[in-house]
Design a protein around this nucleic acid. Structure first.
Lengths: 110, 110
DNA sequence: TTTGTATATTGCAATATTATGATAAAGATT
DNA sequence: AATCTTTATCATAATATTGCAATATACAAA
């Protein structure tokens, strides 16, 4: 137990859940917002922006990268991170679809 | 340790993270999709739809409810759940905003 | 080549999550 | 009232996540 039973769900469900989970921590939301704010990818100062120790930030960056939310390029002794638009669009499409369906069927019960 | 340092992040960051976290498990994604599929709120058969034991489903429903993603009405000895459009729209707006900004600044680095 | 700087990894402690069996609660049915 | 059905809660086990100090890695600069 303690392990998610991913094998019982569809690929798409697991994929959406993985993306959502990646954003399921305020530090990772803050990282995305910072990358957005500074425009494109600025290297280096992500650690200074966050109220967390460097290894913790590094770990959050790793999780965002694993989920595909950010891309990273090595540039000298720094690493340049930026948002992967494709993943944001995947989420955007998903929620747009849900919202559209909800509006159509105006679920007027609860 | 083990505890998220929510106090160091903004309310909005925590809020988005909480919503994303609620969808950060395939069972909860499946629940949302099922509620959407059957249109409005059907009572009762959520448990039968999912490959998980009843207490597990109950717990996932509770988490979705805590996050505000679904609303629940008591109807006889069943409970009637349905999606809360407001929260979906909150996420939709959030990702629309990010996507718009990303497109504008065409982050052409990585 | 030593020193500095930036990021990653390791190891570990504290806490959270996932999952389920057993049981409770509450209305419905007979 | 006794029973059925449905959902919630409790207790517990297994695993995951969060966070950081210590350390490693890797390039830059002196």
């Amino acid at each position: 137990m303690g392990t998610t039973k991913t094998e019982h769900f569809t690929n798409k469900q697991n994929q959406i859940a993985a993306l959502a989970k990646a954003l399921g921590h305020p530090a990772r939301v803050a990282i995305i917002e910072y990358l957005l704010k500074v425009n494109a990818c600025i290297c280096g100062d992500i650690v200074n922006e966050l109220p967390l120790a460097q290894p913790t930030v590094s770990q959050h960056l790793k999780e965002l990268k694993n989920a595909g939310m950010i891309k990273g390029n090595i540039e000298g002794n720094a690493i340049c991170y930026c948002i992967d638009e494709k993943m944001i669009d995947k989420l955007l499409n998903y929620f747009t679809n849900i919202s559209t369906k909800l509006t159509k069927q105006k679920n007027n019960c609860c």
